[in-house]
Amino acid sequence: MTTTTKTPAPNLIPHKVVYPEKVPDNLCPVASECNAMLPGDWRAERPVVDRDKCVKCATCWIYCPVQCIVEKPAWFDIDLDICKGCGICAHECPHRAITMIEEVGR
């Protein structure tokens, strides 16, 4: 059984794992598909931006926990599908350009 041939260790060569296209869905809990849930229906109050007062300072964007502030040509607006209505944007806006108003109806 003696041999003097030196063979490099197979798994010491930098390897690139070839991942299969499809993995059995019952093997181990993994997820690669994004959760599509949107929390816009959590709101009791909604933020409303006063476009005249908004100077696009981005304070609302900086502090919005759900990052639902979207930039428009002359102002920052709110993506209401995502906004949870926490009111941080209104509280922090240095120009008082955002107010929270009660959600009514649908």
Binding site: A36, V66, Q67, C68, G85, C86, G87, I88
Partner: peptide
């Protein structure tokens, strides 16, 4: 992160 994380309103950790 996906838009829909179920952190509380005003969550500093989510931010």
């Amino acid at each position: 992160f996906v838009p829909g994380l179920s952190a509380c309103q005003g969550c500093n950790s989510e931010l």
